[in-house]
Amino acid sequence: SKTSNTIRVFLPNKQRTVVNVRNGMSLHDCLMKALKVRG
């Protein structure tokens, strides 16, 4: 089974995003990807 960790990230202006960290990806990469999608 694939394991994925879901991390809630609290952003300024009362924004919130959820990042799924996959195996083999660093938290930083996942964060940058999530913020790019939002931006």
Score class of each variant (00 low, 15 high):
1 S>H: 13
1 S>R: 13
1 S>T: 13
1 S>I: 08
1 S>A: 04
1 S>C: 10
1 S>G: 13
1 S>L: 08
1 S>P: 11
1 S>Q: 14
1 S>N: 14
2 K>G: 15
2 K>V: 12
2 K>E: 11
2 K>R: 10
2 K>T: 10
2 K>N: 13
2 K>Q: 15
2 K>M: 11
3 T>P: 14
3 T>N: 09
3 T>A: 15
3 T>I: 09
3 T>S: 09
4 S>T: 15
4 S>V: 05
4 S>G: 10
4 S>I: 10
4 S>R: 12
4 S>D: 15
4 S>N: 13
4 S>C: 09
5 N>T: 13
5 N>H: 07
5 N>K: 09
5 N>S: 15
5 N>V: 15
5 N>G: 04
5 N>Y: 08
5 N>I: 08
5 N>D: 10
6 T>V: 15
6 T>P: 06
6 T>L: 07
6 T>A: 09
6 T>M: 09
6 T>K: 07
6 T>R: 14
6 T>S: 11
7 I>P: 02
7 I>N: 00
7 I>T: 03
7 I>L: 11
7 I>S: 00
7 I>V: 11
7 I>D: 04
7 I>F: 11
7 I>M: 07
8 R>H: 06
8 R>C: 11
8 R>S: 05
8 R>L: 13
8 R>P: 03
8 R>G: 02
9 V>E: 00
9 V>T: 05
9 V>G: 01
9 V>L: 02
9 V>K: 04
9 V>A: 12
9 V>M: 02
10 F>P: 04
10 F>I: 03
10 F>T: 05
10 F>V: 03
10 F>Y: 07
10 F>S: 13
10 F>C: 07
10 F>L: 06
10 F>H: 05
11 L>V: 03
11 L>R: 01
11 L>P: 00
11 L>M: 11
11 L>Q: 00
12 P>L: 01
12 P>Q: 02
12 P>S: 01
12 P>R: 01
12 P>M: 04
12 P>T: 03
12 P>A: 02
13 N>G: 07
13 N>H: 05
13 N>C: 12
13 N>T: 15
13 N>S: 10
13 N>I: 06
13 N>D: 11
13 N>Y: 08
13 N>K: 07
14 K>W: 04
14 K>T: 08
14 K>Q: 05
14 K>M: 09
14 K>E: 07
14 K>I: 03
14 K>S: 05
14 K>R: 09
14 K>N: 14
15 Q>E: 15
15 Q>K: 02
15 Q>R: 01
15 Q>H: 01
15 Q>L: 03
15 Q>P: 01
16 R>L: 06
16 R>S: 05
16 R>G: 07
16 R>P: 00
16 R>H: 12
16 R>C: 06
17 T>F: 04
17 T>R: 04
17 T>I: 01
17 T>P: 00
17 T>S: 09
17 T>N: 02
17 T>A: 06
18 V>I: 12
18 V>G: 03
18 V>A: 09
18 V>L: 05
18 V>F: 03
18 V>E: 02
18 V>D: 01
18 V>T: 14
19 V>F: 13
19 V>T: 14
19 V>L: 10
19 V>G: 01
19 V>D: 00
19 V>A: 10
19 V>I: 09
19 V>E: 04
20 N>I: 11
20 N>S: 09
20 N>D: 07
20 N>K: 14
20 N>Y: 14
20 N>H: 13
20 N>T: 12
20 N>E: 04
21 V>A: 11
21 V>F: 05
21 V>I: 04
21 V>E: 01
21 V>G: 14
21 V>M: 05
21 V>L: 07
21 V>S: 05
22 R>S: 08
22 R>N: 15
22 R>P: 13
22 R>L: 14
22 R>C: 13
22 R>D: 03
22 R>H: 12
22 R>G: 08
22 R>F: 02
23 N>T: 09
23 N>C: 15
23 N>S: 10
23 N>H: 10
23 N>I: 10
23 N>K: 08
23 N>D: 11
23 N>Y: 11
24 G>C: 14
24 G>A: 10
24 G>R: 07
24 G>D: 07
24 G>S: 13
24 G>Y: 04
24 G>V: 15
25 M>R: 09
25 M>K: 12
25 M>L: 07
25 M>V: 12
25 M>T: 13
25 M>I: 08
25 M>E: 05
26 S>I: 15
26 S>N: 11
26 S>C: 14
26 S>T: 15
26 S>D: 02
26 S>G: 08
26 S>R: 08
26 S>H: 04
27 L>P: 00
27 L>K: 02
27 L>V: 15
27 L>M: 14
27 L>R: 00
27 L>Q: 00
28 H>D: 14
28 H>Q: 15
28 H>S: 07
28 H>C: 14
28 H>P: 02
28 H>L: 12
28 H>N: 06
28 H>R: 12
28 H>Y: 13
29 D>H: 05
29 D>E: 04
29 D>V: 09
29 D>G: 12
29 D>R: 05
29 D>A: 13
29 D>N: 11
29 D>Y: 13
30 C>Y: 03
30 C>F: 03
30 C>R: 03
30 C>W: 01
30 C>S: 09
30 C>I: 05
30 C>G: 08
31 L>R: 00
31 L>M: 10
31 L>V: 07
31 L>Q: 00
31 L>A: 04
31 L>P: 00
31 L>T: 04
32 M>V: 12
32 M>T: 11
32 M>A: 03
32 M>S: 04
32 M>R: 05
32 M>L: 13
32 M>K: 08
32 M>I: 08
33 K>M: 04
33 K>G: 02
33 K>L: 04
33 K>E: 01
33 K>T: 02
33 K>I: 02
33 K>R: 10
33 K>D: 02
33 K>Q: 06
33 K>N: 03
34 A>P: 08
34 A>V: 03
34 A>E: 02
34 A>G: 10
34 A>S: 08
34 A>T: 03
35 L>P: 00
35 L>R: 00
35 L>V: 09
35 L>Q: 01
35 L>M: 08
35 L>A: 14
36 K>R: 10
36 K>N: 15
36 K>S: 12
36 K>T: 06
36 K>M: 14
36 K>Q: 08
36 K>I: 12
36 K>E: 06
36 K>D: 12
37 V>W: 04
37 V>A: 09
37 V>G: 04
37 V>L: 07
37 V>E: 01
37 V>M: 12
38 R>L: 02
38 R>S: 01
38 R>Y: 04
38 R>H: 00
38 R>P: 01
38 R>Q: 04
38 R>G: 00
38 R>C: 00
39 G>C: 12
39 G>E: 06
39 G>A: 06
39 G>R: 10
39 G>S: 12
39 G>D: 15
39 G>V: 06
